[in-house]
Write a protein that binds this DNA or RNA. Sequence first.
DNA 1: TCTGGGGTCCTAGGACCC
DNA 2: TCTGGGGTCCTAGGACCC
Length: 428
Amino acid sequence: MKAIIDCNSFYCSCERLFRPELDEKPVVVLSNNDGCIISRSDEAKEIGVGMAGPYFLAKPLIEKHNVATFSSNYNLYGDMSQRVMDTLRILLGDENVEVYSVDEAFLDLAEFNKQDYFKVGLYIRETVEQWTGIKVSIGLAPTKVLCKVANHLAKKHKVKTQCVVVLDTKEKIEKALQATPVNEVWGIGRQYAEKLKELNAVYTAYDLSKKAAPWAYKNLGGVVGSRMIKELNGESALALADEQLTVKKMIASTRMFGHTVTSKADIKEAVATYTSRAAEKLRRQKSAATIVSVFVVTKEPSNNGHFRHGNTLSHYAVLPIATSATNELIKAATSLVDKIFDKTKQYKKAGVMLSGLVPDNTIQANLFVSEKNNSKRLLMEMIDNVNFAMRNDVVKFAASGTKRDWKMRVEMRSPRYTTRWNEMFVVK
DNA sequence: TCTGGGGTCCTAGGACCC
DNA sequence: TCTGGGGTCCTAGGACCC
């Protein structure tokens, strides 16, 4: 048996931890730039606040019902996430926990075989809540896809299920699949859901489970589709990932600007800043990059009221030798800006992607690059350590700029209670 | 004038996830 | 006026090789 554990309205729950007066009150958390709603409490949902909708559209409703509204505070959420995951590792052992996202983890419950799974789930849920203050829902089943189905049901019927749903018999699985609309199946997005309903009269997870694997191969994205059918039928096709072995294959840092930007210098500053962040992530996983890509997104005139994505202009450079040194990556990235910049356009977003990643201990010096890389690595380590300790990008490269006109808006961020001494929670 | 078969590597793009 | 950010996996198809 496996399980998935999922924090309830995670970002909202983090905010509430330090504002207990908001318990049982509607709460929402906004994306960067205060653009979209990315987390909402059950109470906000009941009022009719939509998920992932633009903030400005929901604003009248939010103000009318006095919904507590927060800009996202990723320092806080990251730290709370760590605490939840640490709790799970202590309960189950490192090797039985796969962190799937900031608020979700898959668990291997092989050690609990033949026990009362409901009690196991309840015990995990209560311990996490007691140690961290974060409420979670748990789905237990033989495969990952079925765990997700169980977890959906646990969230949908919180009181009745006590946020724990176990699917360990054929009958329970069948019943759960029948109660699950096909678009809620993990791996079925909007496009597939529409296709399934219109062309194949597949409306529920149960209908989908009755399709043959070769059919799914043809119609639902190749092996991805056939695995999904197997998983729905209780045959495990997706193993728990080994955390030690997973390193990212691509690292990106991208942001919307706080307002539209037209100057090349500003774009270069932004790109240099994003490159520094990406390079830090790169060094954290001890990789070096061989490809640097830069893209910008233009602002287009609004299409009579309908939202429209701008055009993406991008370019990449292959480096002569893999590197993790910020200054080298910035040099490559900013010169790419020269290639894609069009002074007749306005821009609303830019980003940097590092790919072609290799372990940085295997970098071979080639004939054309001298052996001075080692001292550079030491410098980078020092900068990372200082920045980590101060947590405010104290040491920056000059190319990143100092005034940062393009910086995003974060107008309603709560204090970073758990990661900054000067913002710590005060007990009166 | 006739022009095979099997393989690898790479990129672009589509779908999905939280 | 205002619509996030960071990923993954897979396939098709082109270039190239022998």
